[in-house]
Structure formats: C-alpha cells, structure tokens
Design a protein around this nucleic acid. Structure first.
Lengths: 166, 166
DNA sequence: CTTGGAATGTCAACAAGGCTGACGTAAATT
DNA sequence: AATTTACGTCAGCCTTGTTGACATTCCAAG
C-alpha cells in the first residue's frame, strides 16, 4: 500500500479479493444481524417472516396489504399465511380503509407492539454495539454502501415511506 | 435535539431512528445482494444453499465437511443433501484426507469452478458498482461495521481461513 | 490392543416459508 | 354495465432448514 498514490489509490478497493471480502462480510454479518431476533422468535413459535411483517407494520401503521407485499417482495399467498397467524394471535389487526373499503389497513395491537419492541430491542442492541465499535464515520460509509447495493425499487421503499396514509 | 453539538455529536448516530434505518438498510441491501446470483441459480435448478457451498469450497479448496458445516451453521443432514447433488452433477469432488482418512476434502471440478465464477461475477459486479458509487472511505466504514456485527465465532471464519490444509 | 470418540453418511419424518395456478368476492373505476 | 383492483383462499409443490437414530471408518488414548 505504498505508492499507488498516483492512479491506483482510487481503484485499490475494487480488486476481486477486496470484493470477495465484502461479499463474505455481508454473509457473516447478516447471520449475526438475524441471530438475536431469531432466538426470540424460536421460543414463540414464530419465524423470520413474522418478524419482517411486524417490523414494517410498526414502521408504517395503517399500511395496506399490497404495500407490504411490495416491500417484502413475496407473494400474497405467502404473506397471508403469516398475517393470518398474526391476526389469530391478536398481534395485528386490520381496519377497513376509510376512502377505499377494499383496503385492509394493518396495525399492531398492544401485544404486537410489545413483540416488536422485544425483537427490535435485541436487534438494535447489536447494531448499536457495532456502530459504537466502528464509529460515526464508518457508520456513514456503511449506510452509503448498503444503499448503493439495493435494487432501485427497494431503495425507494427504504428512503420514502412517509406517504402511506392518504 | 438541537444543541448536543457539544457532547452529543458523537452519539447522534446511535438514536433509535438511526438504528432502525441501519436495520432496514441491512434488510433491503441483502435483498439486492442475493438477487443476481438467485436469478442464475433459478435457471439451473439450484438454490442459495448450493451457492454458499460452492463459494466456500472455492475459497478454501480441500476444506473438510465439518469445517464447511461450521462456516455455514447448518446441520450435516442439510448440507449433505446439497453436497450430494453437487457430487452427482459433477461440480464438486471429495478426496479422502491424506493424514486422516475419515475426512473428505472438498474441491471444485472445472465445471464447478465455472459455475462459481458465473455466480460471483454477478455478485461482484453489484458490489463493485456499490463500492464505486460510495467511494473508498465509505467502503472501509462498511467493512468495519459489518465486522463488528458478526458473531465472534463467525468473525474468526471471516478473518482467518488460511490454515485449512495441514 | 481395545475402546471411546470424531468425522462422515444415510434414512425418515417434519416444518417454515417460498412458489404457481385457479377461483371468489367486494368495491372502485370506467 | 363491465372491467379492474384489492384481497382472501384452496391446493399442491419445492427448497432448505430441523431432530432423531444408526452405521462406518478411523484416530488416539488408556
């Protein structure tokens, strides 16, 4: 890492080896990222799919089934199986849309909100530790790279989610 | 949240909202991260599990089944199902261990290496684009945060994998 | 030299959570 | 009035994870 200060410096981080390291970092980090919530979910007979649904319903109360479908990128049959158990267990409730009565606006119940907190507390704790260890500068870079790695459609989901209630 | 410029500046990135954004960034980015290889695998009747196996066998030729088990964090029954199809299709071959004849050292065949290249080319292309868009500084931060997020055991897998052949 | 344990494979059964295809209903839109 | 949209549901399939049980081979230690 001595004297490619002339031209190489800006390309050094794009070698195949660097990229391979990045790929594995994503793989191993994602394992850690999901490990804590997974442990909690296991004891409650839920899975990662439930976590995702609960997370996004909490983030955007009143979002519609089709919005959630778009965010998660799964089929409605798949999502419905999950939502059904969440309804049955009283974690999520659906309210008929005000303007459009075909829509079902999804909300967490108090019980659902409690689960969400328990899951995201665990996940945030790990994220907080990682952020603290790496420092603010690194966090900014982390976010930039992740954002650049998203599919454009998903990047929109990530950035703008305020316009859900009409 | 106005004037913590004095002490708060270093903690600003640890707010719950910042952490939530980080969590979603991981979720959406991971979708993108796996999207390209997944498309290729689909056409070939393989799945993500095959990709992972092929990736790590390529990374460390001659690694044993139990090492691979530890890296992937799945049961041997699960891994074996995947390995069997890779053997049958002539992508991976197992050589009996030199010193310990119980071990099966895993290697990619030429065909397997070709698949690996095709998959990792796709994945690297996306990673390269993200790296390029975010810049070297950001990449360093990206790697630091991801590393801090791993489980300690997995961090070891990530960092040191040279000592595989005795 | 025997014996315990490690490394591996394999059979069976099961579950979560993806998928496709087909069909139904109510409400909105044209 | 006809079509489209939003949603639900039934049925069936696949991948990939799980447990549990059992066999083989071989290293290593008593």
């Amino acid at each position: 890492m001595a004297d490619n200060a002339t031209s190489g410096e800006s390309l050094l981080f794009l070698t195949d080896e660097q990229l391979r390291k990045g790929i594995e970092a994503m793989f191993f980090a994602y394992q850690g990222f999901t490990a804590d919530p997974d442990r909690i979910l296991d004891t409650l007979e839920y899975g990662r799919a439930h976590h995702r649904a609960v997370h996004f319903i909490n983030r955007s109360p009143g979002l519609t089934v089709s919005s959630l479908l778009a965010i998660l990128g799964v089929t409605k049959q798949s999502l419905n199986r999950v939502l059904r158990t969440l309804f049955e267990d009283g974690l999520v409730e659906a309210r008929v849309g005000k303007t459009d009565k075909r829509e079902r606006r999804l909300h967490l119940t108090e019980k659902g909100a409690a689960l969400e907190r328990s899951l995201s507390d665990a996940q945030r704790a790990r994220m907080r530790a990682a952020y603290r260890a790496a420092g603010p500068q690194a966090v900014q870079g982390f976010r930039m790279v992740l954002e650049a790695m998203m599919d454009p459609e998903m990047r929109r989901q990530y950035q703008g989610f305020k316009e859900d209630n009409p």
